[in-house]
Design a protein around this nucleic acid. Structure first.
Lengths: 343, 343
DNA sequence: TTGTAAGCGTTATCAG
DNA sequence: CTGATAACGCTTACAA
């Protein structure tokens, strides 16, 4: 065990050439003879040579590594983004260090510190629900790390961003609800301090305004975006209030919590109350009734984000102007919002 | 931008001491005066010093990094394992490079190569469904990387392993089915070349044998572990065959596929046919009827796995004897297997 | 308790 | 087309 790994020096020695030639050969440098390249490659294979990325990174001052901060890895939306990111970054020779903030500001700061310590070339970040100050991200930038924000962004930072067009998504959805003949609505979602939920509310509001309704006259529940929170809220709500015609939930998980509370009370969906979600989590197509929702093409979001980052890492930073990409989500109509009484 | 990062040399110079002292101070070396430690720390903070992990790793020959290979990140089971692993490794100062094999042998080899190139100190791996040869893992071991296998393991490698007790899990489940009065069964699951599915079959077989039934007399479908595969299979199966009393599915996703095909045909669950799953994916509690399944405590699995790895990385490798940890899963009985006709 | 000096494995630069 | 040399930033014997 613990046998020393072979280095380019070892290869050089056995071939009676110098390490620099070996290095160049392995990196396919144009000015190296094909024949020496071949012998070097052969010897490398023979000696089971594994390049030492660490040494190379130290020398180059940058690691071929990207850090990615994700609020939670176990949300399909985010894990698909990761997959999309990998599908671009891996072929380009980068690898990913994934960190979870778990929606905590402190964790996010820690994550950034370790990523800086690892001299990552790039950082992808979707901020936690707690994050209101962005100095940690500024620190990354000033350490010469290319930064791209995805999904949960802030306007306070002048970096490239990839967003979903939440306004259109929820506008389209709300319009569908209106077209189904529903008028008496209710909005539930995460805090509107957050771009995603603020925008989802805005789209909802806009569609209602078009038919002369002020969204703020309807009930609004802003809470933690979990099944449990919505379940508890609805259980209590149903004790004291009558049902709206339709519940617009800005999150599939919250929709699910509401559905469980509603069905537990013996109400039928969509007959007694219709409900829609957002994100198209896998369970949305599996529950009964199947949930109307909005597909966000998360894998594609990951790919776009990674492509932008790649560009910024590989060009000379100083002349990068931040770009903003907005992805258009797609309405997915399912049983939970079909109005059977519609004329 | 691009201002050079401060190094221990910079700190040393401004304080008129040497870099070694700074290094020792920052690492809290016992033989450094408290006062110098304090001044060094203060100056480090002042200059916004960020340690260069890369240089340190190069010098020490090892990175404080662990590589983790996961078949798919977007399965709750695996993403929870990751969270468990992080909860142990991060506080210990390690960070995680997560790689997806996407169930491909070739990808797994690539992953291992980049992890070796990154000189990770440890490797956590759950092998892909395609993996039958383990030389790539042996290569990691011979590169002095501590290896722990989790969930999908092989007996061919003499390393530490953390498994779920799939035999007991499916034995308990099958016994529950028998207790409910079901006898006429059917097994669906992934390939039994695989320890998990082989064991889940074995537990099923064992419970049936106890009541004098040979599991092999009942239908068995071994396929790809996806909703779609099971759905297609069942759609066709229902054309030509009568229903069993109960379907034992060794995967929640496959159970879901079967349920969709069954319900599409107009059959009621559990009245016409009962069905159980395995893994307790979140949707299992959300669908109608709620799915009986087996909880595997994936977060705990991640924690155990990481703890073992940590031990092996931090002790002198040569005297590590591989240990095997077996976690006991828990039966979760829900509506989908309740026999209303039971006396 | 601190300083000196060497070296981890690569690669960039300069020279030939 | 290839060689020699220095340097990336840190740690660690060894010396003082």
């Amino acid at each position: 065990m613990a046998k020393k790994q072979t280095t380019i020096q070892d290869i050089a020695k056995t071939l009676s050439i110098t390490a620099s030639t070996v290095s160049r050969a392995l990196n396919d440098h144009p000015k190296i003879k094909k024949s020496t390249k071949d012998t070097v490659w052969a010897k490398a294979k023979e000696l089971n040579y594994q390049p030492n990325t660490i040494a190379s990174s130290l020398r180059k001052g940058k690691a071929k590594t990207v850090g990615m901060i994700v609020p939670r890895i176990n949300r399909h939306f985010f894990s698909n983004i990761i997959t999309g990111v990998e599908s671009v970054l891996n072929p380009a020779g980068y690898n990913l260090i994934i960190c979870q903030s778990e929606e905590k500001y402190d964790k996010e700061i820690n994550n950034i510190n370790t990523l800086i310590a690892n001299r990552v070339s790039g950082l992808l970040i979707s901020i936690s629900l707690e994050t209101k100050n962005f100095d940690h991200i500024r620190r990354a930038i000033s350490n010469n790390i290319a930064v791209v924000m995805y999904d949960r962004i802030t306007e306070e930072l002048n970096v490239s961003k990839v967003e979903n067009d939440d306004i259109s998504g929820s506008y389209d959805l709300t319009k569908h609800l209106i077209d189904e003949g529903y008028k008496d609505m209710m909005w539930i979602g995460g805090s509107r301090n957050f771009n995603t939920y603020r925008n989802r509310f805005e789209g909802y509001e806009k569609a209602l305004k078009e038919i002369g309704i002020d969204a703020n006259k309807y009930p609004i529940f802003e809470g933690s975006i979990s099944l449990e929170a919505a379940y508890e809220y609805f259980k209590e709500y149903l004790e004291n209030n009558k049902l709206p015609e339709v519940v617009f939930s800005a999150s599939d998980y919250m929709a699910m919590g509401a559905i469980m509370a509603i069905q537990e009370k013996g109400f039928k969906i969509p007959d007694d109350v219709a409900i829609s979600g957002y994100s198209n989590e896998p369970f949305a197509a599996l529950i009964n009734p199947k949930l109307t929702t909005v597909e966000q093409f998360s894998k594609e979001m990951g790919r776009s984000t990674a492509r932008i980052l790649l560009d910024e890492m590989e060009s000379n930073k100083d002349e990068n102007i931040p770009i903003k990409t907005i992805l258009r989500p797609k309405l997915i109509v399912r049983e939970s919002t079909i109005n059977k009484k519609k004329l």
